[in-house]
Amino acid sequence: MERRSFLKSFGAVAACAVALPHVASAAEEKKSGGPNEMNFETAVAAITGGKALTPSAKVKMEAPEIAENGAVVPVKVTVDSPMSGKDYVKAIHVLASKNGNVRCANIYLTPANGEAFFGTRIKLGGTQDVVAIAEMSDGTFLIAKQNVKVTIGGCG
């Protein structure tokens, strides 16, 4: 059931991707001013351009199931890829699904990395899914997520 509702919601994302590209650029312009705001659907649409997201075991995400302090949540993403000139991971996108601005980091990799890996520490405003989207060199998008329970929020 979970998988079905997951796919459905991304179907909806694909549908608004065509209609809402200007929303993404408007949010981009806001970047220099006050707090950025972007919801999950818009952020995903901006990344994939409406293409399908495939849940994949190739994308491995390491994040704690319970984070006592939402201000510092370690996240590591590894994507299984040969990282050769023909077959590599172009980008790893890390999103916090319920933060005011869901975007955390877009990491644009090259075959020189040797391994598709990104590690960081993020702030989470509350309990939510941390999502990693891998953009592959063949134009497909793979996704993995993990729910992190936050005891004390990190955005205050």
């Binding site: 950025n36 201000a71 590591k76 975007r103 955390c104 980091a105 877009n106 520490r121 702030k123």
Partner: peptide, 14 residues
């Protein structure tokens, strides 16, 4: 990157 990264952010790559 955006403001969601923690204070004194760490970024790690291969």
């Amino acid at each position: 990157i955006w403001e969601s990264l923690s204070v004194n952010p760490l970024m790690s790559i291969s």
